Simulated scan of single mutants.
Amino acid sequence: MDRIDHSTATEAHQFTEGNPALGVPATVVTEKWLNGVQEELVGIIAGAGIVLDAEDTTQLGQAISFMIANYARTRLTEDIVVTVGPGGDFSSITQAISFLSRTYYSAGDGYIATVLLRSGFVWAESVALSCAFLPWVSIASEDAVVQVQRSAIPDGAAVFAGDRCIMPELLAPLAMDSSGTAGSHIGIHLIGSVLSMSGGFRDGDWRNIVVQSNSSLSATGCDFSGAGDIGVYVQDSRAVIDSSDVSSCATNGIMGMRSSFISAASSNADNCGVGMKANMGAVITAWSSHAVNCATYGYHAADLGQMQVTSADASGAGTYGYCVTSGAMLNRRASTGSYSQALITPTTHGIIF
């Protein structure tokens, strides 16, 4: 970039409005100068990994803030791996994530920093993140399942994310052991945050995963079975858990509350207290799923909840395979199992069709 160099500029290469009385012309704003300014500004924005948007007038400020926050950090220009556990680079996941956050930043180039849990590693910590932006980090394991040591986790969560956190992708399947005292442990707890995972969390003594307050969960094909209370609890949030296992949970395999949307197509909710429940206006779609041999209901829509469970199987339920209460709606077309009222017959409880 250079200062304006047109002949109508001042000797100091500055702009002037001119002076007609003295025959001094106003400075001509040249194509070269305007393009130079444009490309300098665009370069700052693009260098921060921000896609140009003509409708967003805050992008330069965003880019400057990003660069200040990432001062002294190295841009990630290749895939890297750090190890945690026996013989690894770090002894805890918290240490590894802290190191990556302090040392690197991503400009959205697609490079991934993997936290690899070494064989034999036991998850004995509560990993808590807030306001973090870590979609460029993933957590994987050399073992088929990572054991979470319940006695090392206070009544809280093995993984917690809050305040608009974009979590590392969780590839490692987790399972809570029976050490210590059973209580109100949560496997994974999201508050206003985003998580993508492909392993799951099972055998928690209370709830395997809680998704709250405008959070988003992407967890197709995961294992959330064996919870002491609820496998997947979603409140005022969105969760995609198609083809997942939420079986053998004491109270509910899946519970949706209030303004939540849950997709659980082809999922397994067998042998739960209630396989799946949409409550207080929540919506659950679970085509081709099954909730066989549940203690009370296979599928329960309550308090204006809505369920779409066509081609499902709720046979063997202790009370009803399909139940509506308090103005709810349940579509169980082409499904197997008993129902709490006559089909296509509106009542104060709702309607099943």
Score class of each variant (00 low, 15 high):
V324L: 05
V246C: 13
T103I: 08
G327S: 09
I45W: 01
V234L: 06
F66V: 00
S7P: 00
I44R: 08
S119L: 06
A48W: 01
S138D: 09
F201N: 03
A291H: 04
F90C: 07
V159H: 01
A301E: 03
T114M: 04
L60I: 15
Y111S: 04
A328L: 11
G49P: 03
A152C: 13
V122M: 05
A161S: 07
S244I: 11
Q59W: 11
D5A: 13
T114P: 01
G256Y: 02
G275C: 06
S178L: 13
S92A: 14
F353Q: 13
S126I: 12
V211A: 04
V84G: 00
L343C: 06
T181L: 10
L116N: 03
L52A: 11
V28C: 02
N252F: 12
G321W: 01
N35C: 05
W136D: 03
S267L: 06
V37Y: 08
G108W: 04
L195G: 03
S243M: 14
S218C: 00
T325E: 14
L52V: 14
T336C: 04
Q14V: 09
Q38Y: 14
N293T: 15
S130R: 09
K32E: 15
D109N: 11
R207G: 08
V84N: 00
G88P: 07
T10L: 06
P86R: 05
G199V: 12
I262K: 01
A264W: 02
T77K: 08
L117G: 03
L304T: 12
M167A: 09
S130M: 09
R118T: 10
E55S: 15
S243Y: 12
A124R: 06
S126M: 14
G47C: 11
V37H: 07
T251C: 09
A48E: 04
V234Y: 00
L170W: 02
A72R: 11
Y104K: 03
S151H: 03
L343S: 11
T181V: 15
A314N: 05
A265Y: 03
S243I: 10
C249P: 03
S119K: 12
S244R: 03
L190N: 01
V210M: 05
A317M: 09
T27W: 00
S213Y: 09
I344W: 04
S260I: 05
L116I: 05
Y297L: 10
K277T: 15
S237D: 05
H6C: 09
A295R: 14
G162M: 07
S289M: 14
S91L: 10
S247N: 10
N19D: 15
V24N: 00
T336R: 06
V232F: 02
Q38H: 13
M1T: 12
S311T: 07
V210N: 02
Y320S: 07
